[in-house]
Nucleic acid binder design. Sequence first.
DNA 1: GGATTGCTGTTAATGAAATGACAACATTTG
DNA 2: CAAATGTTGTCATTTCATTAACAGCAATCC
Lengths: 221, 221
Amino acid sequence: MSNHIFLVEDDESLAYILKDSLENGGYKVSNFYDGKSARLAFSRGAYHLCIIDVMLPLLDGFSLASYIRQMDRSVPILFLTARDAEEDKINGFKLGADDYITKPFSLEELKLRIEVFLRRTSQTSQCLIGKFKFDYTNLKLECSETQFILTQKEADLLKFLCMHADVVVKRETILKELWGDDDYFMGRSLDVFISKLRKYLSSDSSIEIKNYHGVGFKLLM
Amino acid sequence: MSNHIFLVEDDESLAYILKDSLENGGYKVSNFYDGKSARLAFSRGAYHLCIIDVMLPLLDGFSLASYIRQMDRSVPILFLTARDAEEDKINGFKLGADDYITKPFSLEELKLRIEVFLRRTSQTSQCLIGKFKFDYTNLKLECSETQFILTQKEADLLKFLCMHADVVVKRETILKELWGDDDYFMGRSLDVFISKLRKYLSSDSSIEIKNYHGVGFKLLM
DNA sequence: GGATTGCTGTTAATGAAATGACAACATTTG
DNA sequence: CAAATGTTGTCATTTCATTAACAGCAATCC
């Protein structure tokens, strides 16, 4: 699920460099060279982040941003602006811009900021299990009283069960998916992990990892 | 990592309104009602921005600011001052104040200025890590007692961890980003650098670079 | 019912791999 | 060459998936 970046920059060579290096960074980039065509394009596409030069032909960056804000109240907008145009900033923040980068800037800088924003919006794959909050990417399983740090494999298994909550998942399916194969010892290993997860979740009696004899498991909550 | 605002205002109702609305704006706010207790508190905490009323009981805003400036050479200080006290401004700028807001002011105005300042500090690549101030562009990591000059690679890594504070960053991601590739020896090299950073940061026990076995690292502070 | 067999739950032991700390080496820079 | 920096190698330690061991349970058969 690669993130789609909406880039509006009229300086062709800069635009090219940005597009190229962002694409190398694994993003999908759509590039527009003036405010008007950008505005039209935005209404037709779905984007995860906008990078907009303040100075644009036909329609300036602020007007474009204000239009985008109307269409989408949450998409992060990142302005490219000249070095010390302080009043630009105030102007922009009013429109709900999220950040500025002043030219000239380093690509690294830009990439880092993009990551920060995309992280902020795309929730770090969290899900609720009874009274617990499970954060898969941070391997964290927490409730008001306690917090557990899971190992990768524990987290993988719990995630798999979550994604198939209330459904009986076959042992075979889990093993193929998470262990890559299915033999006697892997099966025993799975049992050990199930046991560990049950222990983590034991403080909430509404949660149950139920065994279906000879078939598999089901996460109930 | 939400920004922490140091607010000193003796008018209780104003203080309450400010604190409340800034907290709603996503900031963490610590509020003090007189200069003396504020001075004590500042020396014990780490803040990203200070908002100080000029007129304060026990210790006036200027004296407080001058103390803060000694402790921290770069934290933005924003004064709240009466309408037309021009000499206050001159006084304040000498002490290294960064901006003034004259009462009465609008909340929007204040919020915008705060954002501008916080962006500015983040743009100059300074960030706070526990009791340390880390200046990426100058490769400087300092606290009240000591100062380290980092190498470029040390600084790169620390910056990367800062930008992803409180998130588990995969080894692979770090290596791809900072070493350009990912093989066994680069992995070992990364471990060496992590070890160096831990040594630099060891004097503040609230900072931790936590390892997630087989996964990566997370900067906690 | 009672015996047998295979499946599951749990805990502990084991060994391979990841990590931390440090030293040695290589490379660059002035 | 001397100093600074990053990489590679070594060894001790830690972590964790797996394996082993044993006890309880479920299904099947007589």
